[in-house]
Amino acid sequence: MPRSASTVRSRVAAALAAAAALTLGLSGCSSVDTTSPKSARSDAESGAKGKFGSVDCRKAKCIALTFDAGPGKDTPELLDTLKREKVPATFFLLGKNHVLEYPEVVRRIADEGHEVANHTWTHRILTDLDGDEIREELSRTQDAIAKITGRKPVLMRPPQGRTDKEVTSISRELGLSQVLWSVTAKDYSTNDSDLIKSRVLEQADRDGIILLHDIYKGTVPAVPGIIAELKKQGYTFVTVPQLLAPAEPEPGEVYRP
C-alpha cells in the first residue's frame, strides 16, 4: 500500500475514534423523533408481511448486528464467521478509503445476503454541515456502493448518531432511512475482545440494534463469542430491514430501539 494511503487511513481511524468518544448516550444523539422497530411493525400494513424474509420479529426474539466504518482488512474474517454461523448483519460502510479500497469485500457483503448501508463518505458530522455538504457525504457513498453492487442503500447511519431536520430532509430526498442503535461496546476504546463481548451481552435485549466496528483490532475476534452466547439466550439474528418487517424502511425516518 502506498505510504500516503496508509497515512490517510491512520488519520481516518484516529478521527473515527475521537468522534466516537464524543457520542452522547447509547443510542446516539438525535434532535428528531424516532421510531422503534416494534412500533414500525405494529403500524405496518398486514399485506407487507414476509417481504424481508421468513423471520417474524413480532414472534421471534430478534436482534440486529450492525458494523460501522468499514470495510477494512479484517472484514473478510468477519464475513467468514457470519457465514459459518448463518448470521445476517447490516454493514454501514464508509466511502472514501473503505468502499473504494475494498470493492471486492463490498461485493461479497452484498452477495452473501447482508444489508449494505451508508455511513457517509468521510465520516463528517452531518449536523455541522450545510445542505450541499450533507448531500455530498451521502450521495457519493450511495453512488460508489451502487457501482459495485448494482443497488443503492436504503439505510444510513449518521456519524455519532447526530441528526436533525435538515439531515432528515436530505435523507428522505435520497431514499434513506436513518438507523441508530441500543447497544454499544465502545470498541473504539479497547482492544480487549472479552470486554467487548461482555459489554454487548450486558446491554442486549429483544429488538436491539448492536453497534460494532469491524475496523478495530479487538472487535472481529469478539464476534464468535457474542453470537454463540446470544444464540444460547434464544436470540434470532436479523438485518435491520428484517427487524422492521413487515414494515419497509421509510426514507427520512429515524429508527432506534
Rank of each mutant, 00 (worst) to 15 (best):
Ser10Ala: 12
Arg11Met: 06
Ala14Trp: 01
Ala18Leu: 15
Ala19Thr: 13
Ala20Ile: 00
Ala21Ile: 06
Ser27Gln: 07
Gly28Thr: 09
Val32Cys: 09
Thr34Lys: 03
Pro37Gln: 04
Ser39Asn: 03
Arg41Lys: 05
Ser42Glu: 08
Asp43Ala: 15
Ala44Gly: 04
Glu45Ala: 13
Glu45Ile: 14
Ser46Leu: 11
Gly47Phe: 09
Lys49Met: 09
Lys51Val: 05
Gly53Glu: 14
Arg58Asn: 13
Cys62Ile: 04
Leu65Val: 10
Leu65Ser: 01
Ala69Trp: 09
Lys73Asp: 07
Lys73Gly: 01
Thr75Pro: 00
Pro76Ala: 05
Glu77Ser: 11
Leu78Phe: 04
Leu79Met: 08
Lys83Trp: 11
Glu85Pro: 06
Lys86Gln: 10
Val87Gln: 05
Val87Gly: 04
Pro88Glu: 02
Pro88Gln: 02
Ala89Tyr: 11
Phe91Cys: 10
Leu93Val: 01
Leu94Asn: 09
Leu94Glu: 13
Val99Pro: 14
Glu101Cys: 06
Tyr102Asn: 04
Pro103Trp: 05
Pro103Gly: 07
Glu104Leu: 13
Glu104Tyr: 03
Arg108Met: 09
Ile109Asp: 07
Ile109His: 05
Asp111Phe: 01
His114Gln: 02
His114Phe: 14
Val116His: 01
Ala117Gly: 05
His119Asp: 08
Thr122Trp: 06
Arg124Asn: 11
Arg124Pro: 02
Arg124Met: 07
Ile125Gln: 10
Ile125Tyr: 08
Leu126Val: 08
Leu129Val: 08
Asp132Tyr: 09
Arg135Met: 06
Glu137Trp: 00
Leu138Cys: 02
Arg140Pro: 01
Ala144Met: 07
Ile145Pro: 03
Ala146Ile: 02
Lys147Gly: 13
Ile148Leu: 11
Lys152Glu: 07
Val154Phe: 05
Gln160Cys: 13
Gly161Asn: 12
Arg162Phe: 08
Val167Arg: 00
Thr168Cys: 10
Thr168His: 02
Ile170Trp: 14
Ile170Ser: 08
Ser171Ile: 11
Glu173Gly: 10
Glu173Asp: 14
Gln178Ile: 04
Trp181Ala: 03
Ser182His: 01
Val183Trp: 06
Thr184Pro: 01
Lys186Met: 10
Lys186Val: 01
Asp187Cys: 15
Thr190Gly: 06
Asp192Trp: 12
Ser193Gly: 08
Ile196Met: 06
Ser198Ala: 15
Leu201Ile: 09
Leu201Gly: 14
Glu202Thr: 05
Asp205Thr: 02
Asp205Tyr: 11
Arg206Ala: 13
Gly208Ala: 15
Gly208Ile: 04
Gly208Asn: 13
Ile209Ala: 10
Ile215Tyr: 05
Ile215Ala: 11
Tyr216Ile: 00
Tyr216Asn: 14
Gly218Asp: 08
Thr219Cys: 11
Val220Cys: 07
Val220Met: 13
Pro221Gly: 02
Pro224Asp: 00
Gly225Leu: 02
Gly225His: 12
Ile226Lys: 00
Ala228Leu: 02
Ala228His: 10
Glu229Ser: 10
Leu230Gln: 00
Gln233Glu: 14
Gln233Leu: 06
Phe237Ala: 03
Phe237His: 01
Thr239Leu: 12
Leu243Met: 10
Pro246Thr: 07
Pro246Cys: 03
Pro246Ala: 01
Pro249Leu: 05
Pro249Tyr: 07
Gly252His: 10
Glu253Met: 13
Pro257Ala: 04
